[in-house]
Amino acid sequence: MAAIEILGLTKTYQVGFWRKRPKCALQPLRLQVEEGEIFGFLGPNGAGKTTTLKMLMGLVYPSAGSARILGCEINDPRMKAQIGFLPEQPYFYDYLTAAELLEYYGQLSGVDAKERKRRVSEVLDRVGLPNVSGMQLRKFSKGMLQRVGVAQAILHNPRVLFFDEPMSGLDPIGRREVRDLMEELKRAGKTVFFSTHILSDAEALCDRVAIIHQGELRGVGAVADLTSSVQGKVEVVWRGNTVLPSVKTLALDSSVTGDTVRAVVLEASQDALIDTLRRERLHIVSVTPLRTSLEEYFVQKLRPAEAAAGVRS
């Protein structure tokens, strides 16, 4: 069963004070996320990621379209007991301690009293805040609040998790811990849908990603598929400290770093370059086909018109 089905969700806001005019925040979005997947929702700031997440959480109403989570409509309370949500830059009731906040959220999620106590200490421990459960949240740093945000999202052991920019505000260790947590959730059979603009996180974690820009879905697929397209170029690295003139004529790009020379050539010129290097008795270190990185794919999808122009030229 699909964990999340987005069926043409659309959002248009009316902007302007006197003369209202429509502003499209999200064009009809169709997307399906399978159970047990880690799905990355990528896009630059203002692309429509948070709007989509807010619509899925029932915080913002769609102008058109609908969505189903675990087969239920998005405002079905039975479904909401089975999802966890971490908003972007979360802010919590700062007069509560971390344990009181989680206790409160546990009550709202319908976790029974006995289980609640155990889960609160368990999740605080899991997010690396075992010794601050009695501290008021107003004394927490931004990174600690982010960890509390993750704790409240996983508190009631939901089947589907929605994280909006989960790594934001975290130091490198915190980011690593959240990545580990997401992998752990996947191993436990949970579905994780997270938005980010940090591509390395998406590349490391996601089974599939979708790229959104200016409210429009620009691409969707498995990370491996998106990044496996061979560009028809090869990178050759050998020992040396100068680029021979014969190599310069073959290479599209070349550079020298210390005692290593790197050249990028078209696949068609690969054999000629290797023959030249052998004739000159140079030690070849590696020959690697160049593949599109997620970052390159992302940039391409963000600028389809420019990219197409580039291909034509």
Binding site: K80, A81, F85, P87, Y93, Y105, Q152, F162
Partner: peptide, 13 residues
Amino acid sequence: KRTLYTVLSRPVQ
């Protein structure tokens, strides 16, 4: 303060 987001994303009408 967006404290409402984590409340209404739960089974709270």
